[in-house]
Design a protein around this nucleic acid. Structure first.
Length: 465
RNA sequence: GCGCUCAUCGUCUAGCCUGGUCUAGGACACCGCCCUUUCACGGCGGCGACGGGGGUUCGAAUCCCCCUGGGCGUACCA
């Protein structure tokens, strides 16, 4: 295909959700891979439901994921003149007609048809009417061919056919004069030169309705590729009741964008046994050939695993920057404490999200260590006094404060006192953190520094029970 | 209801097009062992699937048909 042109066309009636993000990602990857063009179009023909906040939220989410577009965003609400022109064209060519049926009449007919077991389809009352005054309220319908079939070769699903008699005469202009989705999407995709429409599975049924419109308008019909839906654990379409579905909610929960991208791409696409992909690798390896046909269940645990992976292997200074935000949310001033990068290094292998990391980092920045009751009762007992004092002595005797020197200081202390690590190590941990679960004592002391570490141990000595 | 569509471990998937190399491979989760200064990381191992029934064939996860189940659509929403 020469010069691939794809698009992502969200309607701004909410946040960018997981499913939309994956569709956007697939489009982006394909455009990058083929050195094509990725167009972003905002589908806001439903003026009542579209909001600027939603537009901003979607843009922000795409930016977070690193999905930059080459053209756009274009707004359908600013292209009404074009749609109007095309509707007039179809009208004058007899390919569309005015329909004066009221919504109530239509609804009644639909209900009756359903009750009698017939297809709920427009009955064509106004199809061949003439001489109606255009002053009367009316919609415009597309005159859909009623014979034969419409088919297309979906790049993911293969050949799909529909009998034309199944198709309705779609309303393309509402009574209030605004155009409807199935029409504008055709006009836009055609005039924007989109030659591959890569979108969600839920649009398969729209495709045979749109193809005749391309033809009626004299446009070339693009290729289509429909990516399977994302379902929740109960196999129902993914929705809020399955948990967070907004992409940005995951950022707030401490997820890294590369984890989200990696997770999303593997839901429906695979490359042999590989699980971990950077964006660059994806651009190189992504292909519609390896996109599956069946719907997939959103699995938050695998996303979490990927997130942990990227936290573990991520660039320390970047993680530190991101961590700051989450620390702030916990009311911690990241600048008033030990070196943030050192903090990150000590926590990287222990946190699955940045939120978790921030929680785990809190103790580094605490003025006063709050002891967990159980930990205090078990490890901060009066008989530890001598050992803790010995630890302080040896720590203060160090020339520098690296993990290695701390380890040596502990070794010397054990040598001198004859104590095994288990006799005082956990107590030091509780003195430093207030809990029994943390990075190693050596690491923590190296991060906190001698002065702060000893201050905490002294404080613990005064709190022995 | 009708139309479209999908169907391999609990989940994401490889394999299917070009039947035999599949006692069906990998990953997440789960369980066990090892490592270990706690918590983690890591290593090793285990559990676990071709939805059912008919064909075709020497041989079917792979090809065909039926059934069942799931998803989507059926708007003056997109």
């Amino acid at each position: 295909m020469s010069n691939l042109r794809v698009r992502f066309a969200p309607s701004p009636t909410g946040y960018l959700h997981i499913g939309g993000a994956r569709t956007a990602l697939f489009n982006y990857l394909l455009a990058q891979k083929e050195k094509g063009t990725f167009v972003l179009r905002i589908e806001d023909t439903d003026v009542a439901r579209s909001t600027q906040e939603s537009v901003d939220a979607i843009l922000q989410a795409m930016d977070w994921l690193g999905l930059s577009c080459d053209e756009g965003p274009f707004y359908q609400s600013q292209r009404f003149d074009l749609y109007q022109e095309k509707i007039e064209q179809l009208l004058s060519e007899g390919k569309a007609y005015r329909c004066f049926c009221t919504q109530e009449e239509l609804e009644e007919k639909r209900n009756r048809a359903q009750a009698e077991g017939r297809k709920p389809k427009y009955d064509g009352t106004c199809r061949d009417k003439t001489g109606q005054s255009t002053d009367q309220p009316h919609v415009v319908r597309f005159r859909f061919p009623q014979d034969g079939e419409t088919s297309f070769n979906d790049r993911i699903k293969g050949v799909i056919r529909f009998a034309n008699e199944e198709m309705d005469d779609l309303i393309i202009r509402r009574t209030d004069g605004t155009p409807t989705y199935n029409f504008v999407v055709v006009v836009d995709d055609a005039t924007m030169g989109i030659n591959l429409v890569l979108r969600g599975d839920d649009h398969v049924n729209n495709t045979p309705r749109q193809i005749p419109m391309y033809e009626a308008l004299g446009f070339e019909v693009p290729e289509f590729a429909h990516v399977p839906m994302i379902l929740g654990a109960d196999k129902a379409r993914l929705s809020k009741r399955h948990g967070a579905t907004s992409v940005m909610a995951y950022r707030d929960m401490g997820y890294l964008p590369e984890a989200m991208v990696n997770y999303l791409v593997r839901l429906g696409w695979s490359f042999g046994d590989e699980e971990i992909f950077s964006m660059d690798e994806l651009i190189e390896k992504f292909s519609l050939d390896n996109v599956g046909k069946s719907a997939g269940v959103f699995n938050p645990e695998k996303l979490l695993w990927l997130n942990a992976h990227y936290i573990k292997t991520g660039d320390v200074s970047r993680i530190a920057d991101l961590l700051k935000v989450h620390l702030q949310k916990l009311g911690v001033d990241a600048d008033a404490g030990p070196d943030l990068e050192a903090v990150v290094r000590s926590l990287q292998e222990r946190a699955q999200t940045l939120v978790e990391m921030a929680e785990g980092a809190k103790f580094y920045f605490a003025d006063h260590v709050d002891y967990e009751e159980k930990a205090q009762n078990k490890f901060l007992t009066a008989d530890k006094k001598d050992a803790l004092e010995a630890v302080i002595r040896h720590l203060e005797g160090m020339n520098d404060c690296t993990e290695e020197s701390v380890e040596k200081a502990f070794a010397a202390m054990m040598e001198e006192t004859g104590l095994k690590f288990g006799k005082f190590g956990p107590s030091v941990r509780v003195a430093l953190t207030g809990t029994t679960s943390s990075p190693s004592n050596y690491e923590m002391i190296a991060v906190l520094g001698v002065e702060e570490s000893c201050r905490r141990i002294r404080a613990a000595i005064t709190a022995l029970v």
